[in-house]
Design a protein around this nucleic acid. Structure first.
Lengths: 257, 257
DNA sequence: ACAAAAGTGTTAACCGTACACCCATGA
DNA sequence: TCATGGGTGTACGGTTAACACTTTTGT
């Protein structure tokens, strides 16, 4: 779902963005990926201040907020058709950039709409690490993955937003399956377990995990093993798309946490 | 926590409200009460169109969104210090009143900021029915309780907001205790069970319910029985405030649903 | 051969559910 | 005295959690 919209350069954006976007309202995406047995999130770095922040966006005046979130996610990752989950809206009075930022940020004047107080809608998304092409936006110099436990201090309340997103993801794990979005098509049982362990931040019993996850009936074991690693070659699995979607709709109790 | 704010009459509000409030952004409260073994919510009726809607409010430019929700709740119910739970933010393109409403609504001109598209933040609250003094706002002719299953067609997407709130409340029931907010200080076990049954919309086993709820360790049985009713007089209980708060913080698994 | 990882099955504890009997009260 | 609702305890079954042995593979 691509929607063609006006492209503004940074100066136009700072000065007249509020002609196109809802003022005082933004959205921020916590984009989770999984690689090397590590949970990672995508962060942006501001061009002039070098501060790190969550990839965020604004909402066109005639745009659904979920569509705006999808558009934002798409611009940062190149990905489409990703499940986005709205989890909380943040509206503290501290959600306002200091006027002194003007001095640091090129092209931004002291009366920019961006310096007003903002309420932001938080979304999280699960994406397949290897498919992402991190792309900075007009205002950013860098866009890259960070390990979840090495995230630096972020602007405003973005560290808090991240915490809430992680918590929401952990809650979600109790009621809905996870993995199809974060893992490659073919994966091993230890891969999946490692994913759960990383998100929940706790060790799980290998045998009980396998029993439970197989009982959900959303996995198919392939007649293939993952070769190349040391030690015994584990089977490869893939998700049964239909059953996975049904579980996403109807929920299931995974019983960990 | 009372905050004194400017009071506007309806004409001033329609014309210049956006001087004080964040434009395009509102909040709506689903206020749950419990009475006569029925789950109820508080609804408002518009003065001129006689449409029913959720009690909503706007956010002052220098006001925290949670504070704004508390203020709104307070103006409709007279209550203070109520637990409010933000559950979802609604931002569809249909969230805009038709211009034809101008003709129906006194003092509203076609260029009012209120006719713009709004994103609204949904909150629910649990209140003690008997303590509420329903109070219409400046724009409403009526404010009263409705049984949850007799709610009429509401404006915009308010019926949908209500549905989501109810669902969120039901989910909440699995992880957090409930009752202190909705029941009088002293209540009987059948009272509490009836509350749970009503919210979950299902019958529960009397004996198992009692076992489970006592096992949570947040109740204290009093040396009193509720007299006056027919049949055997049931014991009165009250919540242990400390343990209740701890459970509200840390969560617990109630295991119904 | 050895270490390290992966496949598989059994057992015990716990929790949820179903269910029955006795007691108090007003009609 | 009877109908109705309330107080309490037990027994069964399923789920979860703890746990051990064998197999495979690279070094």
């Amino acid at each position: 779902m691509k929607i063609s919209r006006i492209e503004l350069n940074s100066e136009q954006f700072f000065e007249t963005g509020d002609k196109y976007f809802l003022p005082h309202l933004s959205l921020d995406c916590v984009i989770f990926g999984f690689h090397d047995n590590q949970l990672k999130i995508l962060l942006l770095q501001w061009k002039d201040t070098f501060e790190w922040c969550l990839p965020g966006g604004f909402i066109y005046k005639d745009e659904n907020i979920d569509t705006a979130a999808a558009r934002t996610l798409n611009s940062r990752t190149g990905l489409d058709q990703i499940h986005l989950q709205q989890f909380h809206t943040f509206g503290g009075l501290d959600r306002q950039r200091g006027k002194e930022d003007t001095k640091k940020i090129k092209n931004m004047k002291g009366n920019s709409w961006l310096l007003e107080r903002f309420v932001t809608i938080g979304y999280w998304a699960l994406v397949e690490f290897s498919k992402v092409v991190p792309s900075p936006d007009e205002l950013s110099s860098d866009c890259r993955w960070w390990n979840i436990d090495e995230v630096p201090t972020l602007i405003l309340d973005h560290n808090n937003i991240l915490l809430k997103a992680l918590h929401s993801l952990q809650q979600n794990l109790n009621d809905y399956p996870i993995g199809k979005e974060l893992l490659p098509v073919k994966f091993t049982m230890p891969d999946l377990q490692s994913l759960y362990e990383t998100i929940l931040n706790k060790k799980l019993d290998r045998r009980n995990f396998q029993k439970k996850v197989l009982a959900m009936g959303i996995l198919e074991r392939l007649n293939e093993r993952k070769l190349g690693g040391a030690h015994k070659a584990p089977f490869l699995y893939k998700f049964n798309a239909k059953k996975y979607q049904k579980a996403m709709r109807d929920g299931l109790r995974f019983g960990l946490s």
